[in-house]
Structures are given as structure tokens and as C-alpha cells.
Amino acid sequence: MIGQIEDVIIQTFCRLIIPFMQVFALYVIAHGHHSPGGGFQGGCILGASFILLCVAYDIGEAKGRMSEKLNVMLCSLGVIIFGGIGVVCLILGANYLDYGILHKLLRVDVPQARSLGILGIEIGVGFAVMAAMISIFLNLASRGEHEEAIEWE
């Protein structure tokens, strides 16, 4: 078993690159309906930036930045955004995830409503994928035994 390696080259590189990775991930999410990319890919990049932090430092340091409770909440929030937009479309009288009908709610024309609707969907997917990636990594890295348990009020 190899101990924890503190490597100044890797840590400095990760400190440099992680903010740019996260900005790029937001770009991929926000530009998903104009160019290749979208919620899933952007969420994966966001999750990868956090995993890089875990690898370069340690899991405790990374959990100090984003607790596991917040992570699970973001995962649920992403699913709620995705399903919520679909259900709002249903309530307004269109099919599930038929965003065109959102023009009644947003007071814009139909193509703009479609664009905004798919942006919302991608933000939801991005949250859910990011949280799921981080959760999978933390489970695998700590062999299923989390260092701190998830506390629910």
C-alpha cells in the first residue's frame, strides 16, 4: 500500500487548471444547443475538475470544498430541474418536455422559448451528472466507507 503522496508539481498544476476547467465546463453546458457538447459532457468536465482536486490533494480537502450532503442535494436538484420543466410543459397543455409551450410562461416567442427550455434542461442534466460522477468517485476511492457519514436533519 502506497501512502499519500504530496507532490508540489501536480498540486500547483491542479490549482492552475481547475478554475479554467470549470469555466470551460460552464461554456460547454451553456453552448450545448449551438455547438457540440451539452449537459452531460459539461457535467462530466465539472465532475472531473472535482475528481482532479481529490486526486491531487486528498478526499478530506476536497470534501471541505463541497460536502457530501451538498453533493447529494445537487444531484436531486438536477433531476428536479429536468423533471420540473417537463411537468410544467405537461401542465401548460403540451407533451412532456415540449418546451415550445413555455412561451406562454416566459412571454417570448416560440423559438426563443425552445432555446431557453433546452438550456434549462441542460443545466439540470449538468448538475445531476456532475454530482453522480463525484459520488461514484468518492464511493470507489473510499471503498464504500465514507470518511464522514451523510447527516440528515
Partner: peptide, 11 residues
Amino acid sequence: FWFLANPTATH
């Protein structure tokens, strides 16, 4: 990005 990342990964 590649110029920074590839040497770091090799290291």
C-alpha cells in the same frame, strides 16, 4: 492546455 497537462501527467 496540452503543453501544461501532458508533462504533468507524465510526471
